[in-house]
């Protein structure tokens, strides 16, 4: 059982405020670039905000600090949310968000670890991130390091066989420093995941691969923080099913599959910003 409500109201209000600002950045970036993935980014915002502003040990001024917790965006198309968060944390100047998906920018469409401070791995062809993450986690275990590897997968992503290869591997090497998330919004590029290639029962799949699972509301900060706290104590790899709404925070984008990879027009952009400004 989750112990709910353990976070102070002030803290959750602060996280809500952060998330709202990040959502505005996401919509702005994708609109300006006229390219990018807005729906999945908005849906994953609360989880990533909770990780970077409440849960993870990290130093924006020292991105290679060895004791940092690592976050790997395995659903690599959702760069708008991670770039907005990294910029807001101070990993690079916020003005650089304007260069997203432009020639010469370090802010590539999908994460490019060598160039972007705070990005831990090249991901985006799906399934790579979780494998890379468990490889990193194995490396840390060999050294006796104590930090965590938070890996965010899309639900469509884990239709990839490689994700399940990684699942077996993490179980074999007892990688209890891995805490994964499935961003469970039931939508992928071509439609509903259960129509395209069914994933349910999702938690029991992971359990049968030797992972501990939790299911939580991926938009509820108390639940996110409490669930991760529980997961940190587990002695096996953990997969947290985060139930989310694709497009969260902008009414006309919520649960609409067409907002997976379509950039907002000028009107959509203005309406989205208006909603987000009134939303808090």
């Amino acid at each position: 059982m989750l112990k709910l409500g353990s976070m102070e109201k002030e803290k959750t209000d602060l996280l809500k405020e952060k998330a709202n600002g990040i959502r505005k950045d996401i919509v702005t970036m994708v609109h300006r670039a006229n390219s990018g993935h807005v729906g999945g980014s908005l849906g994953a915002t609360d989880l990533i905000v909770a990780l970077y502003y409440q849960i993870m040990k990290h130093r924006p001024s020292q991105p290679d600090w060895n004791e940092r917790d690592r976050f790997i965006l395995s659903k690599g198309h959702c760069t708008p949310v991670i770039y907005a968060v990294l910029a807001d944390c101070g990993y690079f100047p916020k003005s650089e968000l304007e260069t997203f998906r432009r020639p010469g920018s370090h802010l590539q469409g999908h994460p490019y670890q060598p160039k972007t401070p705070g990005i831990e791995a090249c991901t985006g062809t799906l399934g790579l991130g979780i494998s890379t993450g468990v490889g990193m986690a194995l490396g840390a275990k060999l050294r006796g390091d104590n930090h965590y590897y938070y890996i965010l997968c899309g639900d469509g992503e884990i239709q990839e066989g490689q994700a399940w290869e990684a699942a077996m591997f993490a179980n074999k090497y007892k990688l209890d420093n891995v805490i994964g998330f499935v961003d469970r919004n039931y939508l992928q590029t071509d439609g509903n995941s259960e129509d395209i290639m069914p994933l349910d029962p999702l938690a029991s799949k992971w359990e049968s691969f030797g992972w501990k699972t939790y299911t939580m509301d991926g938009h509820n900060f108390e639940q996110i923080v409490d669930t991760v706290e529980l997961a940190q104590k587990d002695t096996q790899p953990v997969m947290i099913i985060a139930n989310t709404t694709k497009g969260k925070g902008v009414s006309f984008m919520e649960n609409e599959v067409n907002w997976h990879g379509t950039p907002p027009t000028k009107d959509d952009f203005e309406n989205a910003i208006k909603e987000l400004e009134n939303g808090i």
Binding site: Q113, A121, S131, G135, L138, Q162, E165, A166, Y173
Partner: peptide, 26 residues
């Protein structure tokens, strides 16, 4: 034996795991 990892019949995972290990300095 402690520096050897048999990934099973998982070439895709093995190469990405290797990338992860390289990122950690191995």
């Amino acid at each position: 034996p402690k520096r050897f990892f048999n990934c099973g019949v998982q070439e895709q995972n093995m190469l990405s795991v290797a990338a992860g290990l390289a990122l950690e300095g191995y």
